[in-house]
């Protein structure tokens, strides 16, 4: 075991504080600190700060655009609702217009039908009266003819007239 301790490479390094060592190390350390501050930590910290700012601005932008998008979608929904209401109104208008027109057409048709019926009835009446008139005339002349032929010899002109009138009266009453 003793030989191992003799082998110890570090045994010598414990002895004493050598201030030149300390000074040299401090010098090296401070030079290292200055160099690294300039060439490594400075640029690194700058970059990290830049990235932080970038991320912050990106987030801000994203929030802004999200708010805008929300607003736009709300507007679109509003417009859609409005259009829908308008369409509904149009359909209802058209329906009611259709119904009233239908009623109008039906009323007009009824009126027309009534008018045609009345005209037809009037026509029929006229024709009937004319036919009766014609028949009366014809019957009168015919009966006169027949009577004159039958009773040419037996009747005076006066009796004849009386007879005819009675006869016509009878015909009129029969109707």
């Amino acid at each position: 075991m003793h030989s191992y301790i003799d082998l110890l490479t570090v045994g010598a390094s414990v002895g004493g504080l050598r201030w030149p060592d300390m000074l040299v190390q401090l010098l090296f350390f401070l030079i290292l600190l200055a160099l690294l501050k300039k060439f490594a930590w400075g640029p690194l910290m700058n970059m990290m700060e830049k990235r932080e700012q970038y991320v912050a601005s990106e987030i801000e932008e994203a929030e802004k655009s999200r708010a805008e998008a929300e607003k736009a979608s709300k507007e679109a929904a509003d417009q859609l609702n409005q259009v829908r209401a308008e369409a509904q109104k149009m359909i209802e208008d058209a329906k009611s217009a259709g119904t009233s027109q239908q009623e109008q057409i039906i009323a007009a048709a009824k009126k027309e039908a009534e008018r045609i019926k009345e005209a037809a009835q009037a026509d029929i009446q006229n024709e009937k009266e004319r036919a009766i008139q014609a028949l009366q005339d014809k019957v009168a002349s015919l009966s006169v003819l027949i009577a004159s032929k039958v009773i040419e010899k037996e009747l005076s002109e006066q009796d004849q007239e009386k007879l005819i009138n009675e006869y016509i009266k009878e015909v009129g009453e029969e109707r």
């Binding site: 050598r18 060592d21 040299v24 690294l36 060439f39 490594a40 930590w41 640029p43």
Partner: peptide, 30 residues
């Protein structure tokens, strides 16, 4: 008394740290 080994090693260590850190922070990107 100056221990040259300490001088040598502190220099080596400083060199390693310097080269590594500068190499690690060159061409910084977003």
């Amino acid at each position: 008394d100056l221990n040259l080994s300490n001088v040598f090693m502190t220099f080596i260590v400083s060199l390693i740290v310097f080269v590594f850190c500068v190499w690690g922070s060159r061409k910084l990107q977003m």
